[in-house]
Amino acid sequence: MGGHKVKRHFVIAHSLEAKPVIKHYGLVKNSSHRAFEVFENDQIKLIISGQGKVNCAAATAYCYYLSDSLDEQVLWVNLGVAGHPHYPIGSLWRVNKTIDSSTSKAIFPVNVIRTVSISAAPAITVDKAERDYAQDSLYDMEVSGFFQAASRFTSLEYASSFKIVSDNKDQTVDNFDSAAVPTMIEAQLATIDDYLLELENNIINNFKFNFQDIEFKELILNSYQFTQSQRIQCETLLNSLAVHQINLDKTALHHTSAKQLLDSLSDRLSQIKLTV
């Protein structure tokens, strides 16, 4: 796990919302994808989902399968505009609860970041643009689909949704000037980026373990004929010995069978006592 750079996957509904993000990170379109538009660099993938929670969930799943390795550590980010009864136009909000208006299912993203403060609000995902703003909540059309899908691929600490208010009771969605969207989003990107950097550090701190000598581990694993369960057992033993900083020498390569190797590794581990 360790040693991987944390990746970011942005799932964004509309190209106007994506435009400032693409520019900010210098993302380049990968034209090999037909289902969705995908922009990327070494660390970031950005997928344009289209409007609605189903499209958003589909794009999130699609993006997951674009990962170089399914084990890599990824921050999932949904970013876009939303309505609210009275929040100021252009204000930035982190979603702390999402409710799918058609099913009433609620999901609670988890905030683990203390240092970067972004005000939080619940969001209701609706199927049609909201004009009544009946509840004191953000209204959008994607975020419930995003969290439903993303929570299959990551834990809720590492999926975030940021909404920038585009319309409210004073300036309704019918008077909304979509040309203003890129500027609104661009104005908040630095704050969002700070938040995501903190989250990346959190991931790095929580997944820092690495086998010290991966090449030697591979050499051992390739030197014997293991059954499937023996292979898993061998990997577990090698990892445990590595945690205790036990360096194996080349004798580990010269056992007569996989079973003898496993017995030897188990014996070695059983002699270890905890050090505090």
Partner: peptide, 21 residues
């Protein structure tokens, strides 16, 4: 920050959570 929920299990029980984080 205050967030309303119906039942605590909506927040506490979902599997997609990382205890360490």
């Amino acid at each position: 920050e205050r967030i309303m929920c119906e039942r605590y299990s909506q927040v506490f029980n979902p599997k997609a959570q990382n205890f360490r984080a």
